[in-house]
Computed example of a mutant assay.
Amino acid sequence: MAKVELTPLRPWDDFFPGSERFAKPDTKDLAKWNNRVVSNLLYYQTNYLALAVAVFLIVGFLNPLGMFTAMAVVSAVFLGSVWAGENRAIINNFKRQNPTAFVIAVMVASYLLISLLGSVMVFMTAITLPLTLICAHASFRLRNMKNKLENKIEGAGLKRSPMGILLEALGQQEENFQKIQSFLEGKLKE
C-alpha cells in the first residue's frame, strides 16, 4: 500500500483560471456530477485545505472559544459516524446506498449539537463557508487531463492522500476502487 502524501499546491491559474474552465454541472446526471466533485476534491485538496485554514484562522481570531467548540463537536460527530458506519451494519448499509444523505446527516447532527452549545454562528461561518466555497468550486470547475490522470493513480491505490482517505471513509470512492480493483485483477489473471 502506498504511503499517504499531500498533493502539491496547484497554481492559482490552474485552481481559478478564466471562465472557460468553469461550467454548470449537469444536474440530471448525478453520477457524472458526483464524479466531477470527487475528482476535483482529490486534485485540488491542498488548495481547498489552504482556503479552509484561512477562513478558520479569520473566524478563530474573532471568536476562539466558539471556534474550539465547533471544531470539537464536528470532529466528535464525524468520528462517531465513521465508527458507527464500520461497526453497525444498518448504518454501513445506509452509508453505501445513500452516501450523500449520510454526509448531510452528519452535517445536520453537527449543526444540532452546536446549536445546543450556542456556537451556531461560528459553525455557520467557520465550517459552512469553506465547505460551500469548496463544494461550489468542485462542482463548477471542469477537469483537465492532469486532474483525471492523478485521480486514476489515486483510485488504483498507487498513491494515497488525506482527501482520498476522507472520501473513502464517507463511502464516496468505494465504487471506483472496486471497479479499478476488478479491472486490475482481471488483467493479472490474463
Rank of each mutant, 00 (worst) to 15 (best):
N35Q: 13
S119R: 02
S115R: 15
N176M: 10
D14A: 11
V4T: 07
F102Y: 10
G164R: 00
I165L: 08
E174C: 01
Q173H: 05
L79Y: 14
P64I: 14
T125D: 01
I104R: 03
F61M: 13
T27A: 10
G164P: 00
A101N: 07
I90W: 13
P64D: 01
Q178D: 12
K146H: 14
W33Q: 02
G66W: 03
T100D: 07
D13E: 15
G118M: 08
K95Y: 02
L142I: 05
T132C: 06
K95T: 12
K28Y: 09
L42R: 15
Q172R: 01
M121W: 13
A50D: 09
E174H: 05
P25H: 00
E174I: 12
D14I: 12
F78W: 14
G164S: 10
N92P: 00
D13G: 00
M124G: 09
G164K: 00
L6H: 11
I91P: 01
P64E: 01
A156Y: 07
E154L: 11
P162S: 03
Q45G: 07
L158R: 14
F15A: 08
V53E: 13
A138W: 12
D13I: 03
E174S: 06
V55D: 12
L9Q: 06
P162N: 01
A89P: 07
K159F: 10
G155I: 03
P8D: 07
K187P: 00
R88T: 12
K95C: 03
P25N: 11
S81R: 02
H137W: 06
M1G: 11
L113R: 00
F61G: 11
N151M: 05
F177G: 00
K95R: 15
G18H: 00
I104G: 09
M71F: 06
A76T: 04
Y43D: 11
Y43R: 13
M145E: 15
V59I: 13
K179S: 08
N87E: 05
D13F: 06
